[in-house]
């Protein structure tokens, strides 16, 4: 270590220690591949380490490093594809209204206790991970940024360079697809009250 001072190094090391599992988990959900996730996090932290002296507000480190990760992911995807992937008709059509709560909160099920809590308790972490990974990329990015990292709609729009209205519509559609996938998985696993067949609708 030559050019970056010791206090900055101590700060960086402690922040990396605090955030590494979250960065890796997020990278896994985005890339859906362990080797690519590891490369993405390593590249992100290399860039962050070099640019760290430029970061004026250390409180902003968490969101700053996360934005580097997202931009790295998008730029890598663009390199791999001849042209950027467009949102397809299949993923933009359809209603944004699938609600897990409405599926579970049925009068006849309420006789048996608390079906909503029961479903939440029985969903495996693996079910949720694969439901996130199943989302088409455009929706996955927005869901990850807002639900997993707590970015605001404006921060998400700014990072992805898209209008805030597009963030709202992708988030709404992404959540609907996510809850539909969870409902289907819960049905297949036999843990969804009232959905023994794994129907997504």
């Amino acid at each position: 270590m030559t050019s970056i001072g010791t206090p900055l190094r101590a700060f960086f090391e402690s922040e990396v220690e605090r955030l590494l599992d979250r960065l890796y988990g997020t990278a896994l959900r985005l890339t859906r591949n362990r080797a690519d996730a590891e490369d993405l996090v390593a590249d992100t932290l290399a860039k962050a380490w070099v640019k760290l002296p430029e970061l004026r507000d250390r409180q902003a480190f968490e969101k700053w490093v996360f934005r580097i990760l997202v931009n790295g992911f998008i730029s890598e995807r663009r390199k791999r594809q001849a042209r950027p992937r467009e949102v397809t008709a299949a993923t933009t059509c359809g209603e944004d209204t699938f609600s897990l709560f409405e599926k579970v909160h049925q009068p006849f099920l309420l006789w048996w206790g608390n079906p909503e809590q029961e479903l939440l308790d029985k969903l495996l972490r693996e079910d949720i991970e694969s439901a996130v990974e199943e989302l088409p990329e455009e929706f996955r990015l927005v869901v990850v940024m807002i639900e997993l990292w707590g970015l605001s709609y404006a921060e998400t729009a700014n990072t992805l360079d898209i209008p805030i209205g597009t963030v709202r519509s992708r988030l709404s559609r992404g959540r609907s697809l996510l809850q539909g996938a969870l409902w289907r998985q819960a049905g297949e696993a036999g843990i969804a009250p009232g959905n023994a067949k794994g129907d997504a609708r």
Binding site: M1, D21, R22, R29, E38, V41, A42, W49, I128, E147
Partner: peptide, 22 residues
Amino acid sequence: RVSEAGKAKAPESLRRRVRTII
């Protein structure tokens, strides 16, 4: 529950790479 999906234990190989970067 969904936000838990954004966390996964980083492998030792990644931790080594990060140390090398620093």
